[in-house]
Design a protein around this nucleic acid. Structure first.
Lengths: 196, 196
DNA sequence: ATTTTAAAACCGACCAGTCAGTCATTTTTT
DNA sequence: AAAAAATGACTGACTGGTCGGTTTTAAAAT
């Protein structure tokens, strides 16, 4: 049986260490021993808190996702589409700065790991795109976009654009002015969605 | 010493097998033995044609890249930006359909493999984005885009959008109408680039 | 044409390194 | 003192790469 999440701070400790170690070389090259060393615990201890390496990875990513979901869209449905997109972009990029290690893990290990993880990550992407499409559909309904917009394609494009920005911010040099970049980006995206 | 590329069709044979096997489970889970089996050769034979697993992967991706580079932009500098983008998108997506296995490899193993591969792939991305930025800069010069466009950000966004489309086409159900989708996408992108 | 011969191509059993996960033992807590 | 937590040496499974030996090919000799 696994210990409850609150037994000590040890669970958090391990999770943080995992973020650091996974982000260094990716899932495969990260050894459980290294995670243990980074956390300052014995290797065996990790298995008191996590089923397996796979499970540790999943918990790690889920934790991060939860975190920034919480900070995320209070989903005030009355905001304009532009405002919603701005917040979406901002939350993701802020996250990537505040939790750089975790962000690297989430981004770079997409294709890594077991078949199980692969499917899991892929389904998350699908869900994200689907949610984005919903948002666009609503906006379209309200006439905030072009009448003939293909929201499916648009959602894929926007998600990709955000992902690319995210990647850039996470891996390349620290960006100077996130807010400005986001404003600029959203402006571009919004123009793209409008009627020709 | 490695054998010349032309000694038999065996090199091609192995490369094709590698595309298939790598695309199935990603770089790490693909075993050289499986590649050998798929190609119908002994494991040792692979090492007559390729230095190592890493090198096999690189050659594979390079081969694919070469191929579609060739088919690519005859770079007729006088085409409109829209036309250039349309061709860029089309070439990538057509490639992903014709060489689905190879496409999966190129896409999903971005973060995978050795440190060496990781860096190599990352540098390719940088280069692609840089080239895209150049294209945008030229167009901006000619007044085809908004005067105040941040071409750096735009290049990142567009590359991401294309990548996302590429991913969708490669992994999800076979798309119905590539040309239509591309037209739609490029239209959106072009609107986004114009002056507000 | 046939045989000889040597080099080139091919092969897969094996080796050596790796690492996730276990568990008997030790340390800490209650 | 006994229960809980922590540990790290160990094991078992796995796989990239090697290498001595076999087969194929092609050229040379008869």
């Amino acid at each position: 049986m696994l210990k409850p999440a609150s037994s000590t701070g040890k669970r958090e400790l391990i999770l943080n260490a995992a973020a650091k170690v996974f982000s260094r070389h990716g899932f495969h090259r990260a050894r459980m021993e290294d995670v243990a060393a980074e956390a300052g615990v014995g290797k065996g201890t990790i298995y008191e808190y996590f089923e397996s390496k796979d499970s540790l990875f999943k918990e790690l990513v889920r934790e991060g996702l939860n975190f920034y979901s919480r900070a995320k869209l209070a989903e005030t449905g009355k905001d304009s589409l532009g405002e919603k997109l701005r917040r979406l972009f901002l939350v993701h990029l802020k996250f990537s700065i505040d939790y750089r290690d975790l962000s690297k893990v989430a981004l770079s290990d997409y294709a890594t790991g077991s078949e199980d993880i692969r499917r899991w990550v892929s389904s998350m992407r699908q869900e994200k795109v689907a949610r984005l499409k919903e948002m666009l559909d609503q906006a379209k309904e309200r006439g905030e976009t072009g009448r003939d917009l293909d929201t499916g394609v648009a959602a894929v494009l926007i998600w990709g654009a955000l992902g690319s920005l995210w990647y850039q911010v996470t891996w390349e040099e620290p960006p100077p002015d996130i807010d400005g970049m986001v404003d600029q980006s959203v402006q571009m995206v919004m123009r793209g969605l409008e009627n020709g």
